[in-house]
Design a binder for these strands. Structure first.
Lengths: 148, 148
DNA sequence: ATCGTATCGTTTCACATGAAACGAATATGC
DNA sequence: GCATATTCGTTTCATGTGAAACGATACGAT
């Protein structure tokens, strides 16, 4: 019999949504930034400058979402948006000083929060969880491909 | 340094969304039913009749979402919506014959799909994954409570 | 009995979402 | 070189979302 509480797609969805809500509350309240915006910041924190498309590739967000997040961040004075010198279709997105400062304030807090969340698992458990998640994601791609 | 690909809230979100998308594609295409609607069906499959509030309690959906899903299912002729005899605020939701028939077609397919997805893990791994998810969810509640 | 409060489900409202259409810039084929 | 196709990012459009307001019913205290 189908028990929703034991149906993994459902359970995962509930868990993911709760995590997102928890995080969004903090980002939003403390920094006035949404989750999509924060994702853009996080990606630029690793590598700069990037085009919108680069961010799409690295973020699992669609291009409309990225476009809106970038617009908001530019308007907030956190990102600068230049056009690529040799290909004017591409943007060159990078932090403004203000943007970098904000990133450097948020990133440690995000990691610290994750730390507090994950410290209910020991290291082995955490590694297992990540490995199993990755397996599930891989299998999912398989199944998705089968249908197409 | 913060690497989005290693940030669990992000990873979980991506995984959950992909699973949902994969499932929604099937529910929607084959049965003309959305995920919230399917959740209502799944809950009624275990226990009948229920009020909308009962479904809210068992489904992690807010009451607006449940209300809309129920309305759609009633309009599709899958649920019957009576009012409780001794408390007219409450609905008494149950399957119509058509609804039950649909449930009994979908439920095995959902389980079978889950089976195909999860068979990339052995039994021990699956049990671990579920246990770890539950731990993470518990810890999340702790943290959420701390803030309030 | 009556007034205030709580609960149930629907609806409103403001906003987020993704698919598709779109204009601009570039690449490709001939 | 010119026409066509493709790529990039924005915008439009239809839909989904949850918080809050709401009307209706029931409960509780006095």
């Amino acid at each position: 019999m189908l028990d929703l509480d034991d149906f993994l797609p459902y359970r995962l969805n509930v868990l993911a949504k709760r995590v997102s809500r928890e995080l969004a509350r903090r980002y939003e309240a403390q920094f006035g930034i949404s989750i999509p915006e924060w994702r853009v910041m996080a990606i630029l924190g690793r590598e700069q400058p990037l085009s919108s498309n680069d961010i799409v590739d690295r973020s699992a967000m669609d291009k409309a979402k990225v476009s809106r997040a970038v617009t908001a961040l530019v308007e907030a004075g956190l990102l600068s948006r230049d056009t690529h010198p040799s290909d004017q279709r591409l943007l060159r997105l990078s932090f403004t000083p203000k943007g970098r400062a904000l990133y450097e304030r948020i990133a440690p807090l995000a990691l610290e929060w994750q730390e507090r969340w994950l410290n209910c698992l020991d290291e082995v458990e955490l590694a297992q969880f990540k490995a199993l998640s990755a397996k599930l994601e891989g299998q999912l791609e398989q199944l998705a491909r089968d249908v197409l």
